[in-house]
Amino acid sequence: MAPYGLTHQVYLDPAYTAPIPGIVYDPQRQLSTVGGNPLVEQPDLMRQFTVTWGTTDRDNKTDNGG
C-alpha cells in the first residue's frame, strides 16, 4: 500500500536541485564561492539557487530535529 499523499509527489527540476558547479564553501569568509567569487555577488546564480522547496534540504530541515 502506498499512502495517498505520495500520488502528488513530483520530482524537482535538476536546474534547481543539482549542486552549483564549482561551488565551494569558504570557511574563512563564511560564504560560498564560485570561481573564487562570493555567490552573493553573482545574481544569476543566486536567483537560481535560492528558491524555496518543500524539502528537508531546502525549507523544513528543522522538522527533523535540527
Partner: peptide
Amino acid sequence: FKAFHAQGADDDAMVTASRVDPDEL
C-alpha cells in the same frame, strides 16, 4: 490535498498541494 511535510519519499522530490476529486480517493 496538502501534505504536512512537502518533502517527498524520494530525494529531490516534493509532494505538491494539488486539486483532487474526492470521488477518486
